[in-house]
Design a binder for these strands. Structure first.
Length: 234
DNA sequence: AACCAGGACGTGA
DNA sequence: TCACGTCATGGT
């Protein structure tokens, strides 16, 4: 009940976020905290093809504990050394020009392991043959944890899987909806139980949480200046 | 000049 | 399970 109410407050305040950003999407989308381009507010009909889907998957790995500005740079770097973002051709770059690829993603940090993670996901993706992966299958891939799996499913496959991130934990523990150290799955369930089962709502809510988190939940004590959601504290 | 970023993994209690 | 160290570049 309250979870849904907070969604409406955030949407009212920040409006539509247009996640997941895609580097080749050119629209009327001048933006916003730490973001550059590629957002597509109110349009939930993504990904439109395999290239966009795999760009989302690549981004979900690269953005682990990293700002999106760095990820966008990396994606543009990759774009320069590949024909397109089809997994087949990304794999080709990895096999034929490993060092260039590594250099392309260096700016996102942890680049040694991220390159390996990307290879693992590629390998996994090829075996799918176009099928939609299950959450359990995704989690077996080394480099894909809870949040990355849910991001891939929610934004890459329009599956109703709510994404929980660090800001989600900070905001909703500040509000008193969860205990400080609740497990990922417990928090995920809180949102999935409190919302209509709709991938568009899930996509928008997570993006709004990040936007709000960037504004009030970076510096400790978290939420100190959160004038927007203070009324919802339990 | 610490501190954080749209985390995940391996280890040892 | 759970707490903690590690991975690393770029911003503020």
């Amino acid at each position: 009940m309250t979870i849904e109410k907070i969604y409406n407050v955030l949407l009212e305040k920040y409006s539509y976020q247009g996640w997941w950003p895609l580097i080749h999407y050119k629209g009327n989308n001048s933006r916003k905290t730490g973001a550059i381009n590629g957002y597509h507010p109110k349009d939930y009909d993504f990904p439109k093809d395999e290239e966009e889907r795999f760009e989302i998957i690549l981004g979900s790995i690269l953005v682990q504990n990293t700002s999106w500005t760095s990820v966008e740079k990396a994606l543009l770097n990759i774009d320069k050394i590949t024909i397109d973002f089809k997994p087949k051709n990304i794999l080709k770059i990895l096999e034929n020009d490993f060092d260039s690829f590594k250099e392309a993603v260096r700016c996102t940090g942890y680049y040694n392991q991220k390159v390996n993670y990307i290879y693992n996901v590629l390998d996994f993706y090829m075996d799918l043959n176009g099928e939609v992966p299950t959450r359990k299958e995704l989690l077996k891939v080394k480099g894909v944890g809870n949040e990355t799996a849910d991001s891939i499913l929610l934004y890459g496959y329009k599956q109703e899987e709510f994404v929980v991130d660090a800001y989600t934990k900070r905001i909703f523990s500040f509000l008193g909806h969860v205990k400080e150290k609740n497990s990922y799955l417990k928090m995920k369930k809180l949102f999935e139980d409190g919302l209509p089962v709709d991938y568009k709502v899930y996509q928008e809510y997570h993006a709004l949480i990040v936007e709000h988190g960037k504004k009030y939940y970076i510096n400790k004590p978290y939420g100190r200046n959160d004038d927007l959601l203070k009324d919802f504290k339990l």
